[in-house]
Design a protein around this nucleic acid. Structure first.
Lengths: 335, 335
DNA sequence: TTGTAAGCGTTATCAA
DNA sequence: TTGATAACGCTTACAA
């Protein structure tokens, strides 16, 4: 049906081997020959069959991006960064989401990867997740974002530091009774939730501030969760004068909760987040911004290096990108 | 190196043909045999080679999702809806973005699709876009979201109606001097920009309201663009008392512009958007909500039907999903 | 119900 | 620099 390499070979008066070499830009092909082959191929509107090429070469020319969420801001932004790099490199990007909320029956990711892709880009799957380790055990080139696992290249921010920055900002403003909106009661090591809690606690300890456990609440990194968490905090006998939210989106929810209680961010209670979400500016939310798109871009580049054999997985390092405190109206000096 | 179908066949004491049939759940295989084959395959940790399977069968088992943006709310939400359906169907999802802002040299989408995927899902590419027509000319199963092209199945909202609803809402509140924040000065037919402008104009005409051309401005469907557009409107000699923004994100920017001018949405100027963006609630923005995730889901289902041969492209219809006006504090009666 | 064997369209080895 | 040709691992008539 479709044009094959044989048709091109015949029309150009060469062998299929030569066509293959010419079209792929391999060396050891006469310039004249290459020109002719390319022209004939274009004339015939020939496109290579990826399936055949993959079968014969053993390479798929594609990588999987594995993510727990697609529509959330952080994840879609990382994804777009990764896509731009992979597309430029001519690599197909297979999108795979894992453990979706409705628990639909779908195959675990690891089996789906085998023989299907050359590598995997994993976005923010907790370091102790079983599916993650099944993926890593595949031994294929892998690059991770937002988590680190020993021996696997990854790109993250310094979560402890980001959290310290946010907390210190509140302390500097004179706050002493500071609430914390975290992800979940228990966060595995090497995840954002874990490290950000630690940065928070460290600053409190160093500053000699005590931490009231009733001032810790959990928003599960969603807007609604943040609202509930803040509502909890507001229902405490003695309210905090400032709150550190581990993500901007939870802070958005927290702001809504404050409004529902007739409170105004910055005036009545200070609040700071982490992310640098576009909407944070609209809500006048102070935040520690992270370069989310770069996270995806750089992780994709690290993956490409592994695919090209320029680097060994074992020799890769954890890359930490810088964050930046952005002060807005939601944080103000304690009056 | 890896286990092949032959290894399984040998271990199970059957032919490769039987293994193939058994593993794929084809009929005409003895139950005993199937059980045994499946067990052996599992024991050997065998996974089928997609490349070989594709080459032999001619089907790729994958579809491309083609989108102009990945990180924007509408697009990532549509994408997540589509992904959930495709993943459940065991179809690989290739993510392809087109005409990215930096104009990187990348192949146009159409050639990249040929022989690589079984179908395409196109998100909101203008109906007159050349690349879109190159894709459609491929003649492969295709399903579109947010635009309609004659003869191609698509899923959208009724943009004219949604716009009418938003505009009528403002009119009902007594507003007579209503501004419009559109996408671009010129919008091709059958795009959201075109239809939403029409719905707006229709309501004005039917209501006997005149439209002042100086009250039309363009925000290019971005937050920043919306801010600039609103600033334009605010700089007019006579300001509007209400504004209809063609998207929530532009409305977000517009709200920021209003704040910069010391104006409060709802109190000083009413504003309504279209989308039902999660953040709209936070900003207390009235909006006409569209079921974005469903858009992706239903379009993906329509695509699957074409792939299964249950439907012919020509016989498909444009599916229009319902929208819903959500009234919040940003719109109030003219005082 | 099962087996045989001819493809599917490349790539890669080896020889020329 | 080029050409023959044997893989690559599966699917699918067709036969049994």
């Amino acid at each position: 049906m479709a044009i094959t390499i044989r048709d091109v070979a015949q029309a150009a008066g060469v062998s299929t081997a030569t066509v293959s070499r010419a079209l792929r830009g391999l060396p050891n092909v006469d310039d004249q020959t290459r020109q002719r082959v390319c022209r004939v191929a274009a004339d015939l509107d020939y496109v290579i069959s990826p399936s055949a090429s993959r079968l014969a070469s053993g390479r798929t020319g594609s990588v999987a991006v594995i993510t727990p969420y697609i529509a959330r801001w952080f994840f879609s932004t990382v994804l777009s960064g990764a896509e731009s790099v992979l597309a430029s490199a001519g690599i197909d990007l297979l999108l795979m989401s894992v453990s979706n909320p409705f628990g639909q029956m779908r195959l675990p990711p690891a089996p789906r990867l085998r023989r299907r892709v050359d590598g995997a880009l994993v976005i923010a799957i907790p370091a102790d997740d079983q599916e993650l380790h099944e993926i890593l055990d595949l031994g294929m080139p892998t690059s991770m974002i937002g988590v680190s696992v020993k021996g696997v290249p990854s790109v993250t921010i310094d979560d402890v530091q980001a959290s310290r920055t946010a907390t210190q900002h509140l302390v500097n403003l004179g706050h002493q009774r500071i609430g914390l909106i975290g992800g979940a009661p228990v966060s595995p090591p090497f995840t954002a939730g874990h490290d950000r809690r630690r940065g928070f606690m460290d600053v409190l300890a160093e500053t000699g501030l005590s931490f009231d456990p009733s001032l810790e609440s959990y928003g599960y990194f969603t807007i609604d969760g943040g609202e509930r968490a803040m509502t909890d905090l507001l229902n405490q006998p003695v309210r905090p004068t400032a709150v550190f939210s581990m993500s901007d989106e939870m802070a958005f929810g927290a702001i809504r909760a404050m409004r529902n209680h007739g409170l105004q961010p910055g005036r009545d209670i200070s609040i700071v987040g982490i992310d640098g979400h576009e909407v944070a500016e609209l809500l006048d939310l102070s935040t520690v911004a992270q370069p989310v798109q770069d996270l995806g871009r750089i992780a994709a580049e690290a993956l490409l290096e592994q695919l090209d054999g320029h680097a060994d997985r074992q020799h890769q390092v954890v890359q930490r990108l810088a964050t930046q405190l952005i002060v807005r109206g939601s944080t103000a000096p304690l009056t």
